[in-house]
């Protein structure tokens, strides 16, 4: 099988998936609205900062958006702690000042 092949035309892909992703798009918009309506300081959580940078990737016109967003949300530090004792579970993003976003 050749790489870079989807058997569908662009029109067929839109026909197949538009409704599903329309719903996900509105979900993202509603989530950002919800954050706006929240109480408290605007002090940006590192996950929120990374999320908004990821949203910019969606419209930058370049390929490999999924891979680039996953990269943005990855730990790029080289530190290796001795033990996981007391560490939290994965949080889904990394502070940009702490090894995030290469």
């Amino acid at each position: 099988m050749n790489r870079q092949t989807n058997p569908q035309t662009k029109q067929q892909i839109v026909d197949t998936y538009f409704m599903e992703h329309r719903a996900k798009l509105v979900d993202i918009a509603a989530y950002l609205d919800r954050v706006d309506r929240g109480h408290g300081d605007d002090a940006a959580d590192f996950r929120d900062v990374a999320f908004r940078r990821a949203v910019e990737i969606l419209l930058d016109g370049q390929p490999q958006r999924a891979g680039r967003i996953l990269n943005l949300l990855s730990d790029h530090s080289t530190k290796l702690p001795q033990s996981a004792d007391g560490m939290k579970g994965a949080l889904g993003a990394v502070s940009l000042t702490d090894g995030g976003a290469a």
């Binding site: 996953l70 949300l73 990855s74 730990d75 994965a90 889904g92």
Partner: peptide
């Protein structure tokens, strides 16, 4: 590993 730890962990 999961989520933000996957890329670094996969390389290690």
């Amino acid at each position: 590993p999961h989520l933000e730890d996957k890329l670094k962990g996969t390389r290690l």
